[in-house]
Each structure stands twice: as structure tokens, then as C-alpha cells.
Simulated assay, not measured.
Amino acid sequence: MSTPGFSDLTAVVVNCTLKPSPTLSHTQGLLDVAIAIMRAQGVEVDVVRAVDHVLAPGVYPDMREDVPGGSQDRDDWPSLAPRILDADILLLGTPIWLGDKSSVATRVIERLYGLSGDLNDRGQYLYYGRAAGVVVTGNEDGAKHVAMNVLYSLQHLGYTIPPNADAAWIGEAGPGPSYLDEGSGGPENDFTQRNTTFMTWNLMHVARWLKDGGGFPAGGNSRREWDAGARFDHPNPEYR
């Protein structure tokens, strides 16, 4: 069966580990599997380790200015955001801590939210026309909870979520080997291999459809037109 070409697609992979470079990141280890598949298909992949950047807390595009109550001295988000916005695919990776995504993943999503009110040239929300997925690692329960949380957040911002858009590996509950540790069984785990592969291909397929269609279809979803008075066949409660 022939598959469409993906060589004009771009992806950004944001690793939300708590470990700064060059410390070994098990989350990066699993993300590297998805990266290898995308690069084998010609996708240009940009890799970001978010903790290496100063991402000021807040939900404004630039926390150094125009911030009620005071500004931050440094904020790397304005230089990082264009790398995310330029990509057809966003793959966010996070470890599990206390059953939830990392604090770094929360910060990245909060900063993404700070741009969610902006519009594209169709009047749709800014993140329309892009595909997103999530990778989770850890040795405690919570992979599905984290995936639900992250994927909900990304679709709420406007990303398109493909089927099977999450992949995870968790070791035995409690202290023990992590994904890249010798003897963990993580890289050899068939369930994780399959889910990571399907997720990556589905991200590429959806990104291909969106790019070929010129973005997410317009119709009934323009914030600009809604604000101008359009109601897209929503029934008028005054005439029920």
C-alpha cells in the first residue's frame, strides 16, 4: 500500500522532563523513537528541552511586558513560541510525577494558552490546522490520566488530535528501572513500540490532510465572524 509523502512536513518535539541538558532523559528516549520514524519519512523535526529555557509563569505572550501586577526580568517564551507555531505537528513528552504530568509540561501548556486567543488568517483560533500528540514515561501509575489531561488541553487550544495520539511506557510500580535503564524492558516492549509507531504515523497522516487542505476547514468556526454577529445556524433562543 502506498503512503503519501511527508517530506514537506515539520514537527516540534517538546520534552518536558525536569532534567536539564545534558542529563539523560528517559522521556527523550521514547520521544527519540517517534523522532526516528518521522525523520525516516522526511519530516523536519525540531527538538526542544523546555527546562533548558526560562519560561516565566503566566498566560501572556511575553511576561516581560504588559503584565498586570508586575513583569518578569527574563522570558524565553517569545523566542520559543515561533518554533512551535511554525510546526505542522506538536509532540509533547512528559514524565509522570505524583500521578500527573510534570510541572514543566504544565508551564508549557499555560504559555501555549497565552496565545490561544490569537487568530489565523481565516479568523479561526491560532492553533487550528496543526496535529498534536503526547508521550508519557515513568515508573508509577498515571499514564492514561496524563494523556487525557494533555490531549484535552491541546485540543481545547485548537490542535487536531488523531486517533491513538498517545504512547507511554511505565515500569514496575515504585522504585525501579526507568525506560532507558539496562534491563527495564522498555525499548523492547511491544505494546509501547506499537503505540508509539501508530501515534507517529497518525500524526503525520493528519498533518498531511490539514496541510493539503490549507488548514482546518473553515465554516462555522471563525471567531472573527462570530464577534461580527454571525451565528452559523445556531438557533435563536428568542424564536423558540
Rank of each mutant, 00 (worst) to 15 (best):
G5N: 15
V12C: 13
N15R: 01
P22R: 03
H26I: 08
D32I: 03
V33M: 04
V33S: 09
A36W: 06
E44I: 00
P57H: 06
P57K: 07
V59H: 09
P68T: 05
P68I: 08
S71Y: 05
D73S: 13
W77P: 01
S79K: 15
L85G: 11
L90T: 04
L91P: 01
W97H: 15
K101N: 03
S103P: 05
V108P: 01
E110C: 00
G114S: 08
N120C: 08
R122W: 03
Y128P: 13
G129W: 00
V134L: 02
G142V: 04
M148F: 11
N149W: 01
L154C: 02
Q155L: 01
H156Y: 11
G158P: 04
N164Q: 15
W169M: 01
I170A: 04
I170Y: 00
E172G: 12
G176W: 03
P177C: 08
P177H: 14
E182H: 10
S184C: 01
E188K: 04
R194F: 01
R194N: 10
N202D: 02
L210S: 07
L210D: 03
G220A: 04
N221P: 07
S222E: 08
R224L: 12
E225K: 15
A228C: 06
F232N: 01
H234K: 10
